[in-house]
Design a protein around this nucleic acid. Sequence first.
DNA 1: TATAAATATATATTATAACATATAACCTTC
DNA 2: GAAGGTTATATGTTATAATATATATTTATA
Lengths: 92, 92
Amino acid sequence: MDDLIKQLLDARKKKGITQSTLARSVGLPQSHISSIEQGKVDIRVSTLLEMARILDHEVVVIPREHYSLLMAIIEGKKDIELEPLWKPDEED
Amino acid sequence: MDDLIKQLLDARKKKGITQSTLARSVGLPQSHISSIEQGKVDIRVSTLLEMARILDHEVVVIPREHYSLLMAIIEGKKDIELEPLWKPDEED
DNA sequence: TATAAATATATATTATAACATATAACCTTC
DNA sequence: GAAGGTTATATGTTATAATATATATTTATA
């Protein structure tokens, strides 16, 4: 399943609401939420954003170079290796 | 314009490629890239992901609580206030 | 094991992204 | 101001998400 969709599914469950409740909030029929969560449809961005918003999440586009760092933070790992914000006099 | 789309546009320009080049990579006509970048269409998630991928970016769904932190990191701010990974004996 | 609640499947319709293609409108730069 | 490269518009077609609705399955609970 698409990773983004999986996260929305996890978020819905964590929030403890049903497909029907989510559907009502987003304005889609429950049947469509079911299809979405099963990865059967390639939803529109507006739909993704609406679902995320209702589920207290945000959708962001990030430079790939930051990806693993952000994932680490989200997953709550300790001892994150931050890229240095400056380098000590890099000369040749 | 949609914030996500704006980021893709910025990314394309920063990468220094044309709509046509991006279009070829993604497999869409240039005319459609134009529409997308002008926010005239509500694209599908697969399209968003493809464009982001080509432009060396990733699309992620994040808990809202992490949003400002991630934005800070992406925008390269110094002195990021990380949420404490532990709290020093929080007692009442 | 009934009953209910939640989720999945089915079907038909409507709206619109994606596609293909062409051309027009902008910009540079010579 | 012509030429080339880039971006925006236009039109028609096709694929499919969204809608509406109903019902079937599955899962939980009394």
